[in-house]
């Protein structure tokens, strides 16, 4: 261990958030899951809610998220994180509850759970990571895969005639009365990362103020299964994903708007 002298006139501007454990992640090099984990941890630190936060891990690449977050965590069956979060939040309303779900988890097998939970206005927060593919199982077509996108199960590209169009979850959930705050952000560059962090913070504040269901969809990459370099994947995502999945808030209830104005 090398110790480095920090000059006395230097101040700390960034360090590892307390809400992350020291465990090294299993994610591929350049995977944006790591960035999103860190943003959630930073927000939880900033709001001072780590001791009373319970996360729900999904099935997918982020199935091991409970190793990386330094707080109470539960593991849900595939797609069932919103159902589990509902139970935990209703039994312990003083806890801050969030689910962390990928697009295969939330938009395929778990579509019913997320729609019903949002419609009931459950007071938990969902972080929905959309990278347009099934990462863990080897790059198959997901409900969010873009038209024409090549995957292992759509080798000639997604055919919308047979597979339908990619599902826009942020727009779909926004029309439900129980949803208070729904937004779509992207972590493709530092500016997007800062905006995503602000959105995650607002989502947790929505829950703390008991205004209703909150969800942040985060556009993400999967350079491994997209068969691209790390930087190339970010560029591809900026060009193609953002074109289909527009960024911004799709639902801001009056209560959340008032919250935004006080910030």
């Amino acid at each position: 261990m090398v110790t480095v002298e920090i000059p006395a006139d230097m101040e700390l501007v960034y360090k590892r958030p307390q809400s992350l454990t020291e465990t090294h992640t299993h994610y591929c090099p350049g995977c944006t899951h790591g960035i999103i984990h860190r943003l959630i941890a930073e927000v939880i630190d900033e709001l001072g809610i780590r001791e009373r936060t319970i996360g729900i891990a999904p099935v997918g690449c982020s199935v091991l998220a409970y190793y990386y977050f330094n707080m109470d965590f539960a593991e849900a069956a595939h797609g069932r994180a919103p159902a589990m979060a509902t139970g935990i939040k209703r039994v312990s309303p003083d806890r801050v509850v969030f689910t962390y779900q990928g697009d295969g988890d939330l938009a395929a097998i778990g579509t019913a759970e997320i729609i019903q939970a949002a419609n009931r206005g459950e007071l938990f927060t969902t972080i929905f990571v959309n990278n347009a593919i099934y990462g863990m199982t080897g790059g198959q077509m997901a409900p969010t895969t873009l038209p024409g996108q090549v995957t292992t199960s759509s080798p000639t590209g997604r055919d919308v005639e047979t597979a339908g169009f990619p599902m826009k979850m942020a727009e779909l959930l926004a029309v439900l009365p129980g949803a208070a705050y729904v937004t779509r952000q992207a972590v493709f560059d530092p500016r997007g990362i800062h905006r995503t962090r602000a959105a995650i913070k607002l989502a947790f504040q929505t829950q703390l103020a008991e205004l209703g269901f909150s969800l942040v969809e985060v556009l993400s990459t999967c350079n491994t299964n997209w068969h691209m370099g790390v930087v190339e994947a970010l560029e591809w995502a900026k060009k193609h994903m953002v074109a289909y999945y527009p960024l911004g808030d799709t639902k801001v209830s009056d209560g959340v708007r008032a919250l935004m104005e006080t910030r």
């Binding site: 920090i6 000059p7 006139d9 230097m10 101040e11 700390l12 501007v13 960034y14 360090k15 590892r16 958030p17 992350l20 090294h24 992640t25 994610y27 350049g30 995977c31 944006t32 899951h33 790591g34 960035i35 860190r38």
Partner: peptide
């Protein structure tokens, strides 16, 4: 993505 950096800035 892997929280490799700790950053300091001169006051």
């Amino acid at each position: 993505p892997d929280v490799v950096f700790t950053v300091y800035r001169r006051k």
